[in-house]
């Protein structure tokens, strides 16, 4: 059911945030955009919230097991206006993240919709777990 789904994900996320272990291993805290990492079957799913970002203003690169997101959040041109509140942030970003294993560069899928970037990555065949027989 819908609400139990969000409840479970929420609980899992809360567990991650409340655990010191994650806090210590985050080497890029403070870099934009924030990334959530999930696993699904044999795939790795990365999500980032980038409201207002256009496809053409984002560049995604994969080098070995490091993924990088570079781009610019642009504000629309406005004339003859007076601001009441400015909470949105605009500017450039350059974010790199080390992935838990090597990724097959041929199987990277990127999808940008409703202000969410979703990257679906697959493990490189060579780094997949193999059972080793003892001779």
């Amino acid at each position: 059911m819908f609400y139990s789904d969000i409840f479970n994900t929420q609980r899992e996320l809360d567990r991650i945030f409340n655990n010191d272990f994650w806090g210590r291993t985050t080497f890029a805290r403070g870099s934009y955009p924030g990334i959530n990492m999930f696993e699904m079957d044999d795939k790795l799913v990365l999500k980032a919230e980038v409201p207002g970002l256009k496809k053409q203003d984002l560049q995604i690169k994969l080098e070995n097991d490091v993924i990088s997101l570079t781009g610019e959040m642009k504000n629309s041109e406005k004339e003859n206006i007076r601001y009441h509140r400015r909470e949105r942030m605009f500017g450039t970003f350059n974010r790199s993240m080390k992935l838990p294993y090597r990724i097959d560069p041929e199987k990277v899928q990127a999808f940008l919709a409703d202000g969410i970037l979703t990257l679906t990555l697959e493990k490189d065949e060579n780094s997949k777990t193999r059972t080793i027989e003892i001779q």
């Binding site: 819908f2 789904d5 969000i6 479970n8 994900t9 929420q10 899992e12 996320l13 809360d14 991650i16 945030f17 994650w22 291993t25 985050t26 805290r29 924030g34 990334i35 959530n36 990492m37 999930f38 696993e39 699904m40 079957d41 790795l44 799913v45 919230e49 838990p100």
Partner: peptide, 17 residues
């Protein structure tokens, strides 16, 4: 949130709601 059903969280930097 339906797509999150099959996801197993590994690491997180932002919360959703």
């Amino acid at each position: 949130t339906s797509e999150y059903t099959d996801y197993r969280p590994l690491y997180g930097e932002y919360n959703i709601g």
